[in-house]
Amino acid sequence: MNQKPLIVSLSPHVFSGLSIEKSMYAVIIALVPALAVSVYVFGLGALYLTFLAVSSCIALEFVIQKYLMKVPVRALDGSAALTGMLLAFNLPANLPWWMVLIGSFVAIAVAKMSFGGLGNNIFNPALVGRVFLLISFPVAMTTWPKAFAYRCLSHVDGKTAATPLMTLKEGLLNGQTIEQISAKLPDYGQLFLGQIGGSLGEISAAALLLGGLFLLWKKIISWHIPVSMIGTVFVFSGILWLIDPLKYVHPLFHILSGGVMLGAIYMATDYVSSPMTHKGMLIYGCLIGALTVIIRVFGAYPEGVSFAILVMNAFVPLINRYCKPHRFGE
């Protein structure tokens, strides 16, 4: 029998079939419910802004890979699209288009490609882009469209509103107690479903949790970072609340408002900039949670998730060095 030469290779001979593309697009799919809520609450502008961020990130990555780095172009592997999507999710839905482009540029060109591209960036690119915009354009970045403002033709109420966290911070700075402020705050149902002002993609805890469950089921992320981060925010703010419920808000408000859900499930779990071992992930998640509460309660900014994650990104190499898995038999 005339047989072609057999291929000889080392084991294993079967593979899981997982790929970078599959992981990245799974996260993007998981973000779709949150995007849908956002379009419902903020109108088609949210979709437009997301599309702008995603396409500009992909285009930038393409240009840099092809003309600057001269490496095989892999701009469609989903990582640039995901960065764009997460960047958009962290912006007010009515941000001017050119600011979005600046954000994309900082995220892709500065935070990702200048470190060597996918797999080599120390900091989460989307968050670098977001924080750059926040510091450069503080007014535009903290002017949030009011929920359902796109449906009101009367302009009576105005089109913008503070986020629940900003309302809380301002109230506390003016010497009000939680009881006085809480009249102005949305209830937990509204917080959970997302009928509030805020960044484009962070508003609906329910939609974000739904996507998170999908990622856990698909084993794209592990539970360690989200659970430890959300848990720490809850416990830490809960302790403060127990000490003085007039000065500190209920822990449930902390985990449902602002970027805690988005940060814990989608930003802190970013493969490249998070630790490699489960032990490390738990430490990382806990410290992000603690930093978030410290910034929110004692810092100048009403919201601290972005800063907390970026600060902890810097500690990841250290965490990797000292958190080793349990070595079998030792």
Binding site: I7, I20, G117, V272, M276, T277, P325, R327, G329
Partner: peptide, 23 residues
């Protein structure tokens, strides 16, 4: 045939599946 090798995206899956706790 094996697929084209890509960069490590530090997803930590190899660490979590290693039965001997190596990296």
């Amino acid at each position: 045939k094996r697929k084209q090798k890509q960069v490590c995206i530090r997803c930590a899956k190899c660490v979590s599946v290693c039965p001997l706790g190596m990296e």
